[in-house]
Structures are given as structure tokens and as C-alpha cells.
Simulated assay, not measured.
Amino acid sequence: MRMNEPENPIGSGVELDLVPVACAMCGGSETKPRPVFEGYDYEYRTCDNRFRFVACSDCGHVYLSPRVRMEDIDRIYPRDYVVRVTEIEYPAFAPFRWLKLNVLDRGWNKKVIANLRPESRVLDIGAGFGGNLTYLAGLAPFPLQLSANDLKFEPEARSFLVDRGVTLIEGPVEEVQCEERFDAIICQQVIEHVVDPRRLVRWISDHLAPGGVVYLETPDLHGLSRYIFKNHWLALHTPRHFHLFSRKALTACVRGCDLEIAFHGAIVEASHWPGSLRIKLGMEPHAPRSTGWLYSLLSYDNFFTKCVSCMIDLSAIMLGLSTVSQALIARKPATAA
């Protein structure tokens, strides 16, 4: 299928060298991948390149190819890059901040905590400021030993986490030499960013204690909004997302690393609806509400927009449909060596 070639809407003046890659899931190199999505860096406008997501002709996995060279990876993560944290998506005192923390997030956190005990070791991969990690620790009725991983911790994040007794692990986690075995690992919206997802999940499996659990969260290739926004779907996050997982592909990846799936389903992600609409309408995705009335309506913290977005996702879940993100909890067998 040949897609239309729209005019470049970015105009950054930067063209990065791109390299074609093979499918990381099956290793097939003699494939003829089928284009699925095409587009630009609509969110941060770091470069003028046109990117393409393709489906592997051997296993069907969808991935970005060609993509930026690894030596240029910092070019597509600007200094103002927004890591998804509750404080950004759900500002203080907003009703949906309470809903996010006490209803939507509490559910999966409780599933993880049910497998823990006093002084259990918990690692958050791609932790950022550690919001997920410290929230889970606050819900647990007993003390936990906390560790946080990220490529690099900014000074503010480092200070915040160290002051709370969190052990920091810097660098690509799949390359980290670590003797520790964890009782729980959180990997939230990370696996789609890495070069080799199987290597990441294998590292997680190898570093879980017997009976330990992992919480994985990533965009769902077949999310309802994908069919509405297509090339302007916020979940593409071009060019920072290297992979888009179907539930089938994520299941195969996890089971292939000797983990047993305990839960796999859709979750509510209210912010992707206004974000995708902004991109579809050619608006600046991160512009403040003060930019204009339409920006105010499609703001991430607009009460009405949040209500509508949450209701759409909740309705989709009740109807058995996929939303923009999927969540998976898997366990390492208690008999594992």
C-alpha cells in the first residue's frame, strides 16, 4: 500500500541520517515490510525527516524503519522532553488527578503489592522522577527497598529520589550488570523505546526473584483511537517509539522469556485523545491553554475534555475493545532457579 506524501509540516531545518533495520522480534532480515504508518515528529519537531512504521512480513510485528542512528538519539529527545508523570498529565487539585491516583492507578499497583512482603525489592525502569515508584511505596502497608533506573537522572530527579532512600541505577537497563534480584519490576511506557525489546524482557526475567512480578505498560497497536487518527495518532510518538505492540506480540515476547502472564488488558489513558486531536488539526501539541480557545478546550487538564476522554476509554474497556495502552502483569515461576 502506497501512502500519500503530504508536505513537510515541521520546518525545523534539520535532516538526520536514518538507517533501515530488521525486525527485532523475529530477526528476519530478508523481509519485505509493509508500510503501516507514516509521519513526522509532530510533537517536538526535532527534525524534518519523514518516518515510517512497517509490519514485518514474517511475524507481523510493527516497528520503525528506517530510524535515527543511535549516536543521534539525543537529538530526538530535546531538553524539554516531557516524561509522562501524573503531575504533568493530571495537575494538582484537578478531579482527574484524584481519579488517576485512587482508581485507575491503584488497581494495578494493588495487584503488584499483593505479591510483595516487608522489605521487598522493587525496581522502576525508566523511572524519571520516580512518581510511579514512590506512589506504589506509599500504597504498600509495609516498607520496601526501592531502586530506580533511567538513562540519566537530572539533578532534580536525583535529589528527589536520593532523599527518599531510592537506589539509582543509570544507563540502558539491559546493559546494566546487576547481581540484585527484585521482587517486582515496573516497566511503564518504556519497552516501545528500546532497540531490542526481547533483550529488555529477558533482562527483567533474569533479574526477577522466583515468584517476582513485572508490570509492563505500552501502547496497543490495535487501540480504538488508532483507526480514528491514523498517521496523527499520538501513540506513534514518532520518532521516539521504535516498536508498536499488538497484544499477541507482547504476549509472545513475555512468554518467550519464561514469564507467566497473570493479567493482560486495556487501561484508561485520557490524555491521548486531546493530544491526537491537536496533531490531527495541525496544532502545537504542547502549547499552553492561553494560546487560544481551541487549545484551552483540547488542553490536557481541561475538565470537560478529561471527562469525555475517560468515558470513551472506560466504555471501550467495558465493550471489550482495546484502548491506546495495554497493561500486562507477569510472574516468574516460584520454582525458577
Rank of each mutant, 00 (worst) to 15 (best):
M3A: 11
V14F: 05
E15N: 11
L16E: 12
L16F: 02
L18W: 05
C23H: 03
C23D: 00
T31I: 12
Y40I: 04
T46P: 10
C47M: 10
N49Y: 07
V62P: 01
Y63H: 09
D80V: 09
R84V: 11
P91N: 10
W98Y: 13
K100R: 15
N102R: 15
W108T: 14
W108G: 05
P118I: 06
R121L: 14
V122N: 05
A127E: 00
G130H: 02
L133W: 03
F142Y: 13
Q145W: 00
L146M: 02
A148Q: 05
N149C: 02
F153N: 04
A157Q: 11
S159C: 06
L161F: 12
R164N: 12
G165Q: 08
V173E: 00
E175Y: 03
Q177H: 08
R181K: 15
I186Y: 00
C187Q: 04
I191F: 03
D196V: 06
P197N: 12
R199G: 09
L200K: 06
R202V: 01
L208A: 07
V213N: 10
L216H: 09
D220W: 05
S225G: 08
H241V: 00
L244A: 05
G256D: 13
I261S: 02
I261C: 09
A270T: 12
S271M: 10
W273N: 05
I279W: 11
G282K: 07
R289F: 01
G292S: 14
G292L: 10
S296V: 00
F304Q: 08
V324W: 01
A327R: 10
